[in-house]
Design a protein around this nucleic acid. Structure first.
Lengths: 232, 232
DNA sequence: AGGAATTTGTGCGTATGTATC
DNA sequence: AGATACATACGCACAAATTCC
């Protein structure tokens, strides 16, 4: 099992299992083979497998029952397994898409809280939709230490996928502050009927090394949309 | 290292370190001894110590740097280390206290979402304060499967401590839904000036076995208070 | 600049405890 | 009560990152 210059073995196993769940090869409620058997099939040690399974548990995809077995727990959304937070329609669900409005790089304005290790940051403004309907405005400040430049065409639908694949940045932890706020100038009109007051979530995220990576604000109409955060 | 009928060793170590941080015996930025030395001092194996340290990392209290060392990262709030979520004054901080208004046990009303394994639930209503000032109303529905009866005098300041110590219930995961709502009848007047609309967080929590344990609603004045959730 | 020493990360194997079936 | 299966704990070897000289 030599595996230099690739991801750690337990990460490979964990991601393989996540793919199996996403693809429907492992179904909700299904029981996995005993750890020793499974480790034997995969040609890895029990300890390594256990580390991969602990990862799935942390993501809420697995339930481990001592004396019983390991059971797949497929969350409501398999697509956004990596997502710690999501927007959803009050009615429930909604297909999420995101449209990048602008990207800019500048020295951090004074009204931002302290985060990251650089004086500069990339500002990403997005309009997020659910089932095609405008649902929220988002302004993300990514610390300048991860990349020098950022272009609109770099950004795929999933920011976190881009962060991970292109910048080597993995978001490990986040803190949300929930309150109300007024619609920013640049977003006026984009959310439909103008409201005096919108739901506002301010978020700071941290990377795999414990450094704060992003500060972001998300404005949304609380009559149409809910903001869901998954904690552990 | 026999340790029957007490908490696992790695949990004991983790909690000891958290107490050390809270008490100021370990300061922000401080570097811990090498793992092997530390394990030797504590008379435990390196693997066990590593599990405790992983726990601190997950809580955002430690930064581990390969080839360098383990560094204390003291969050803004040392007191509520166990908390996944907290209320704070917009100005920042505030000493949290909670006053139980009522406890009742009944079959679950229809307007609750599906959670837990029992048909009955305990309803706990609390008034939460910050620096003595009324900050939020809270209605918690605890699934009936954890205990038959619940009395006001059972409940300590920290519900989660009570859950763990008396009910064997450890909250492992939670999901918050953020929106707006109107003040419930039973709480009118308690939050001071009547508002048309309050911040509302609906929360479902899961126990160590992956069963949903609680459903709760928290109402708060978004002009005075912010709701903070810590994700991982 | 570069190599050695230090320190954490990964992976393996094993023994024993404890919950479930 | 016995078998099964996960949980905890120990120890070792080597890899990778950092630091120091």
């Amino acid at each position: 099992m030599a595996q230099t210059q690739s991801l750690p073995l337990f990460v490979q196993i964990s991601e393989m299992l996540i793919r199996d769940i996403s693809a429907g090869r492992l179904l909700d409620g299904e029981r996995l083979p005993p750890e020793r058997d499974m480790a034997g099939q995969l040609q890895i040690s029990v300890g390594t497998l256990r580390k991969a399974l602990a990862d799935l548990t942390a993501k809420g995809l697995l339930e481990r029952r001592q004396g019983s077995g390991n059971y797949i727990r497929q969350g409501s959304d398999t697509a956004s397994v990596y997502a710690l937070f999501r927007l959803e329609l009050i009615a429930g669900g909604g297909l999420p898409t995101a449209q990048v409005l602008s990207v800019a790089t500048m020295t951090k304005p004074d009204d931002l809280p302290a985060f990251g290790r650089s004086d500069v940051a990339h500002r990403i403004r997005r309009l997020r939709r659910l089932n095609g309907q405008a649902a929220a405005l988002e302004e993300i400040w990514l610390d300048g230490s991860y990349t020098k430049a950022l272009r609109v065409e770099d950004l795929s639908e999933s920011l976190y996928l881009f962060y991970r694949r292109n910048l080597g940045l993995r978001v490990q932890r986040a803190e949300d502050r929930i309150g109300m706020g007024v619609c920013p100038d640049w977003g006026s009109g984009l959310l439909g009927a103008d409201k005096e007051s919108l739901g506002l979530v301010e978020r700071v995220t941290w990377d795999q090394d414990g450094h704060s990576a992003e500060f972001s604000r998300t404005w949304f109409d609380t009559d149409k949309v809910r903001y869901v955060s998954r904690l552990r």
